[in-house]
Amino acid sequence: MVAAGIDIGSTGTKAVLFDGEIRASIVVPTGWDPKAAGLEAFRQALDCAGIAEGDVHSIVGTGYGRVSLPIFDRKVTEITCHARGAHFLHPETRSVIDIGGQDSKVISVDEHGRVAEFAMNDKCAAGTGRFLQVMAGVLDVSLEQLGQLAVGATPARISSMCAVFAESEVIGLLARGADKGSIAAGIFHSIAGRIQGLAGKVTLSHRVTFSGGVALNRELCSAIGASLGVDMCVPHAPQMVGALGAAIMGFEA
């Protein structure tokens, strides 16, 4: 019995094959064609594990593109999938913070990995991967470099959470000669503040797992952990948690 979980997000498309253990784990860029990206990630995962498509007994789709693939046996929202995936990786998890390309979520999870409640950002890029991308663009660095820049720097004050206004603020800071490191640290603090506001809406435990592609950025993880006053547990491949949860649900169905 092998199940596939395919998470078609706004930025990356992830595929996981699961048979009680993770057999393959693949990320491809979503690009403009979520359908093709989903099929490509699935094909690469099959190749990687050396499993034939016919041997996959269940395919569960999640993420924004979950509506786009006819091969899905079932579609589940990423909120439920992230909860299940985080619970599998860290069974003691009671809260999940998931920051993806276009939204962020704080999910409260019970001892079985089921969603108890959740909060999601409003229609706005504040506190999302997109916000980080815009800011990295202004500083003309990659997302990884943004994290490295922030190490040990004193955060500059960036009061706006709106991607557009914060961009003007950062441009203003650069014009006044502020150094990139403190701006990068300031950007992380701004996102942390936004997530803190979101986390106030659900019961947040001390056992928090941070999932989603943005969690690859260690500096941001520590900034958010510090602002929430919790130790953040970051999985080895945080961007795969949703696809993993989807695969687990397919496996258990």
Partner: peptide, 24 residues
């Protein structure tokens, strides 16, 4: 915000489904 609302509402219906002992 239709797409974001869909995720929230669908996840909410999933929460209800699991509480009633359906598939998680």
């Amino acid at each position: 915000d239709t797409e974001q609302l869909k995720v929230r509402i669908e996840a909410f219906l999933e929460v209800i489904g699991t509480r009633r002992g359906g598939r998680p």
